[in-house]
């Protein structure tokens, strides 16, 4: 097995980054009473898009109807949407400061760029479905859930990473 060479020197020490991330999460819970998240913002985006494109369908389909019932203020005016916009800005600033900007399609040595894009797209689809079924993704369900010591957080963490390890062997060509 030939490991890929990754230059780690430019990145922040992972434990330091972990402590910072933990403090950000703690501040989030202290101020807003809720954890960090990501997939929920995309849900708002999907619902808003469907409401704009096919309003009749949005009124009838139970998923969209449920959403508008629980989000009276309307689609995009939600905590997670604002947070994810911030993530976009924060990531951009960090890339700019550390000189990591630039269009790049990152993939393992054994596959073409096209294969990588198809795999990334498929992975996104699965994450989209899985995060809705599991009521949150790695940040919303697993990380934030573990911080507040909810059983759901630990179950999500074990299921996501356990499944990753279980499937890793079959898709090793994508990465190594």
């Amino acid at each position: 097995m030939r490991p890929p060479q990754i230059d780690r020197s430019n990145y922040m020490n992972p434990y330091l980054a972990g402590v910072l991330l933990g403090l950000i999460l703690l501040a989030t819970i202290f101020i807003s009473g809720r954890g960090l998240g990501a997939s929920g913002a995309f849900k708002s985006l999907v619902v808003t898009t469907v409401e704009a494109v096919a309003p009749a369908h949005a009124e009838n389909a139970p998923f969209f109807a449920n959403y508008s019932k629980t989000h009276a203020e309307g689609g995009l005016k939600s905590w997670l949407v604002f947070e994810i916009l911030g993530v976009l800005v924060g990531g951009f600033l960090s890339g700019l400061i550390s000189g990591r900007m630039g269009f790049k399609n990152e993939h393992g040595p054994g596959i073409s760029g096209r294969t990588r894009l198809i795999a990334a797209f498929s992975g996104g689809i699965l994450f989209g479905i899985g995060s809705q079924l599991g009521r949150g993704c790695t940040s919303g369900a697993a990380l934030s859930g573990m911080a507040v010591m909810s059983s759901a957080g630990f179950i999500a963490m074990m299921a996501i990473f356990g499944s990753g390890y279980a499937f890793a062997y079959f898709f090793r060509k994508l990465w190594i």
Binding site: A119, A120, F121, S122, G123, G124, I125, L126, F127, G128, I129, G130, S131, L133, G134, C137, T138, A159, I160, F161, G162, S163, G164, Y165, A166, F167, A168, F171, L174
Partner: peptide
Amino acid sequence: IMGLGFILG
């Protein structure tokens, strides 16, 4: 499902 998505994506 998310774990499989992680490996693929």
